Amino acid sequence: MNNTPESSFERCPVCQGSGSLRHLVTIREVPYWRCERCQCTLMDARCRLSPDDEQEVYRLHDNQPEDPGYRRFLNKLAGPLLARLAPGSEGLDFGCGPGPALAMMLREAGMQVRLFDPLFYPNHGALAGQYEFVTCTEVVEHLHHPLETFSLLDRLLKPGGLLGVMTCFQTDDSRFANWHYRRDPTHVVFYREATLQWLADHFGWVLEIPAKDVAIFRKPLSQPPVPGNG
C-alpha cells in the first residue's frame, strides 16, 4: 500500500520546477516536500495557516529595536552589509515587521533606509524605487510565492546593489522534525545553501555567505536576461 501523500503543488514555488518535488516527511499529518531541482523544503500548501491566523502569529512577535540581544542577532547581517556599502547608501528594509530594528541600526550607521511591510508598513510607494541595498530578515521563510517575491527584490535593486537575506538554513534532514524553525506554523519554505545558489544563478547574482544563516547577493552592474521558468 502506498502511503505517500499527493502534493498540493503543480510546480515548486521557489524554482518553478515541474515534477521536481518528492515527499520528504510527514510530521503530525503535515507533509513536507523536497525540490530536487533547487533543494528547498516546502510545507504542503493545504496545511498553511489562514491569512487571519497568520497575522495573529505575526502580531505576537515582540522584537524591540532597543533590545541589545536582538541587535546582536541582526548584526550578523548588518555588520557584513555595512562593510560592503558606501557611506550614505539608500536602501529598503523589506518585511521590516512592527519594530524595524535593522533599519534603525543601519540609519545609525549613516544609511538612508525606507520601510516596507505588507502588514505593519504597507508603503507601496517604496516599491516603486530602486536602491543600493535591500534587506530581508526573517522574511523569506514565510513566502507563499517565493520566486515572485525574489523577482520583485531583483527589480528593487540598482545594478551593483546588494540584497541581504537572513533565514535559518535547512541542513540536516534527520533533525528536521524537531527543528525549532520548522515548528513555527508561519514558516512554509526552508532554504538550503544550494537553494540560495539556485536563486543567485537564476537572477545572475553573486552569492556570499558571510555568516551562519546570512546570505548577501550582489546584482551585477550589467545583467543578462533572467532565464525562462521551467
Rank of each mutant, 00 (worst) to 15 (best):
G204W: 10
Y58A: 10
L42F: 00
I27P: 05
M104N: 13
Q170N: 00
R28K: 14
N63G: 03
R46L: 11
N123T: 13
G19Q: 13
G88A: 14
Q170F: 03
N2H: 13
V140I: 09
L24K: 03
S222Y: 13
A128Q: 14
T41A: 02
I216L: 12
V113A: 10
N63C: 04
P68N: 10
R28E: 15
L24P: 00
P227G: 00
V134H: 09
G164W: 06
E193Y: 02
G79E: 15
V57C: 04
K219E: 10
P122S: 15
D154G: 02
R37M: 04
A45E: 03
P210G: 09
L49D: 01
P68R: 02
R155I: 06
E148P: 00
A177R: 04
V226N: 01
C35H: 02
L21Y: 03
K212L: 11
P220Y: 06
C12N: 05
R114F: 11
L74V: 08
G88I: 14
G230H: 07
G17S: 05
G110N: 00
R72N: 06
L119R: 11
L153R: 07
A45Y: 04
R183E: 14
Y58G: 09
V14F: 00
N123A: 15
E10D: 08
P51M: 10
L221F: 14
P68S: 12
E10C: 09
L106S: 05
H187Q: 11
A194F: 11
P118I: 06
P225A: 09
V188A: 03
Y70I: 07
L152C: 01
R22H: 06
L60N: 13
P31A: 03
D172Q: 07
A126L: 08
E208M: 13
Q16Y: 10
L152P: 00
V57Y: 12
Q55V: 07
H142M: 07
V25W: 05
E66F: 15
T135N: 00
N123G: 06
V189M: 05
Q39Y: 04
G125I: 01
G97V: 02
M43A: 08
P98L: 02
V134W: 04
V206L: 12
R192A: 14
Y131L: 12
D184L: 04
L153V: 05
L221P: 04
T41R: 08
Y191Q: 02
Q130R: 15
S18G: 09
G110V: 02
